[in-house]
Computed example of a mutant assay.
Amino acid sequence: MCLTQITRGRSLAFPREVVFSRSFRAGIAMTFSSAVVMVAAVFLVPQKFAFDWGWDPLQVAGGLMPVILALVVGTRLCAPLMARLGPWKTGQAGFSLTTVACLLFLNMSATPSWTAILAWSIPLGISLGVVLPLGLDLALRKVPENAYGTTSAAAHAARQLGGTVGVAFVGGAFNFAAQGIPGSAYQMAFLVMASISGLTALALTAARFKHRRKSGR
């Protein structure tokens, strides 16, 4: 009943103008999708390093450093990109780059390769660094002052839900592939992540063109 009231704009905590705001819905979707990819990557990549490549904990930490540093760079790029391209084009570009990064992970071989690591980790970190704060910004952009707290909580809940789905759904795909086709588990998991990112980019593109058509621009 609570969800029905919220989606129909009848909740006191979520006014109608918030629920039906396209920026709020886009922000929640972006926050959810980026959390799915980020948490799934954090869940899977150390396993690749440790179990497939036989790296010790220090080497695993070193292998994660490129994506972590790129994530920091991405957060610094978010505001300039939004100012130059606008939030919708920035979101499209961010999720498109995330899709490419997940597909580049498929080049990871059974033997350690820093070239392969850098090829996917830098674009993945930069793109997630851009879309994570962008999603929160969009969700809260047109929120009235009396609904700011609950809307912020909803955005953070979407991020937590995305992380849970990232581990459960992508992890399920990983385990299914591991049992069915030996050696394909990581490829299957990152294909799922690429699909989620790609669908989000397409949804943002469709929403932007729909808005332009309605506004006559």
Rank of each mutant, 00 (worst) to 15 (best):
A139F: 00
Y148Q: 12
S152E: 02
L161W: 10
G149K: 06
A158M: 09
A154V: 06
P144F: 03
L136N: 13
L140S: 06
L138A: 02
T151E: 04
G125S: 07
D137I: 09
L132Q: 14
P133N: 09
I126M: 08
V130W: 08
V130E: 10
R159T: 02
L140V: 02
S152F: 06
A139L: 04
D137E: 12
A139G: 14
Y148W: 10
I126R: 04
V130L: 13
T150A: 15
G125F: 00
P144N: 10
L140F: 05
G162S: 05
G129V: 06
G129K: 02
S152P: 03
A153Q: 07
G149F: 12
A154K: 04
S127E: 07
A157G: 12
G125E: 07
R159G: 06
T150I: 13
A139E: 01
A147D: 10
K142V: 11
L138N: 02
I126S: 05
T150Q: 15
Y148V: 11
S152L: 03
V131F: 03
V143W: 02
R141A: 13
G135D: 01
L140C: 12
L138R: 00
A139D: 00
L136H: 12
V131N: 00
P133I: 07
G129M: 07
G129C: 08
A157V: 14
Y148A: 12
R159W: 13
A139N: 05
N146H: 14
L161N: 03
L138M: 15
Y148M: 11
E145G: 08
L161G: 08
G125L: 04
H156Y: 11
A154Q: 07
R159Y: 05
D137H: 14
Y148L: 15
A155D: 03
L161E: 02
S127Q: 11
A155T: 13
I126A: 05
T151K: 00
G163W: 09
A153C: 09
K142F: 15
H156C: 05
P144T: 13
Y148F: 15
I126F: 06
A155Y: 01
G162Q: 01
A157S: 13
G163F: 09
A158L: 06
G162R: 00
L138Q: 08
L138T: 03
R141C: 10
G163A: 12
L132E: 12
G162T: 07
L134R: 01
P123T: 08
A139W: 00
Q160Y: 11
L161S: 07
L132S: 12
P133H: 12
